[in-house]
Computed example of a mutant assay.
Amino acid sequence: MDRLEIVDITSGMVTGTLRPAHQPALSPSTQDPFVGGNPAQPPILAGTGVQRSVVTAFAATAPGKGTTPPRPVIEILAVDAGTGREAHRIEIEPSDDSQHKLTRKHPVVIGASGPVVIAQVGTDTVAVNLDDRREIWRRPDFALGAVAGNVAVGTDTKAAVARALAIESGAERWRTEPAATITIKPGSPKIVTATGASQGRKQFFRLLDAATGRVLDESTATSSTAYNITCLHDGRSVTICQDQRQDWTGAFDDSGKWLWELPDKEANRIAPTVTTTWHGAVYGRTTNGPVILDARTGEDRETAPGLTPWLVNEHTAVASPPDASGGVKLYRATG
């Protein structure tokens, strides 16, 4: 990624573009940005109240001077969420593994708590305080999976152990028992998911309380879907999970209780491919076309909505046109 674009949601016009202060290190001119998948990630919101910032990260190369050669840097860019103007730009060091051009990776801002943002920089997890404009802690060899509440949860890259680190200090809050493999991903604002295999090679899919590491549920531990599940919170009280490889979709509430799952052979119902979820509605599609489910019950709410949106809020939806003409369009929310 080599720029952040500001788009007027009512017109679709790009109203501003912000770029790294230095030469982008991983722009299309230096490497194919889609090798191994699209590296672009959405920015995150940080701060509280009216002091909200949109935050992203760039890999860049600072110019050399005299006998000092050019050097790699990571730029953390914060943009005022109300005005779209640059608020802060903070430079931090890349991780040791990303010093070499061939092994450098796009830095990704994963989450925030107040003014502290947490980013994955190569193999390091790094915390930056936007108010102080400085790095406050760094955890080498740590694959950050999710930021939930006041902890950053991830796994050691050299040992299959999940840990939670305090956002304000980087101190360890809890850890899991060693496993053969384990991956942490976001669940809800207070829950993370842990998937992988135990040392006995039994696959597991667990819901963990982010604050304590307590297992809230592992009722789907024998499911063959364990490795590929991703989840989206609806912004209200339900998290929708799916595994497209296995055609499986399920939902749990903010207490960690499973509410429903599809497919349901007894009811003769199949699982949809979910594109997004918002405030009690699950948007997706099946072989029958677009569909909207009720997030708490899993029942069909609308069987012919006409669109399968990728992004939704209370005002608008972004979706591909139903006429298959390509691209995406903005649609006004109804009801």
Rank of each mutant, 00 (worst) to 15 (best):
G84K: 06
R52V: 04
A46E: 01
I182W: 00
G64Q: 14
G200T: 10
V282Y: 00
D243E: 12
P263M: 11
T61H: 09
M13I: 13
A324C: 10
P305I: 00
R19W: 13
V291W: 00
G170F: 02
A324Q: 14
D80F: 12
R206M: 06
A211G: 03
R301A: 10
W137I: 09
A46G: 08
E93Q: 15
T225L: 04
V147Q: 01
A87G: 11
Q242Y: 08
A281D: 09
D253F: 14
E86Q: 14
R134Q: 15
Q41R: 14
I118D: 00
V291R: 01
V238G: 02
K202P: 07
G306F: 05
F204Y: 13
D97K: 14
G335F: 15
D132V: 07
A197H: 03
D132R: 15
Y227H: 06
G149E: 04
R296L: 14
I76P: 02
L144G: 02
G82S: 09
I229Y: 03
A211E: 01
G122I: 02
E5P: 05
L207R: 03
A271C: 03
T61Y: 10
L293T: 00
R175K: 13
I191G: 02
G36C: 13
T195F: 01
S98H: 07
K158L: 13
S27G: 15
S255D: 15
K101N: 15
L18M: 09
D97E: 12
G47H: 11
A304E: 08
R3I: 06
N313E: 11
P272C: 03
L311G: 03
P309A: 11
D217M: 11
F204L: 06
A333K: 15
I240P: 00
P178T: 03
G37W: 03
T67K: 15
Q51S: 11
W137K: 11
T181R: 10
A197N: 09
A194V: 04
P290M: 04
T239L: 12
W310L: 13
H233Y: 12
V318Y: 05
D97C: 05
S27F: 14
D234V: 06
F204H: 05
R89K: 12
A152G: 03
Q244G: 07
D254H: 13
I118S: 01
V108K: 08
T155I: 07
S237I: 07
G335N: 15
R52E: 12
G213F: 02
T277E: 06
L18H: 09
F142E: 01
H106M: 06
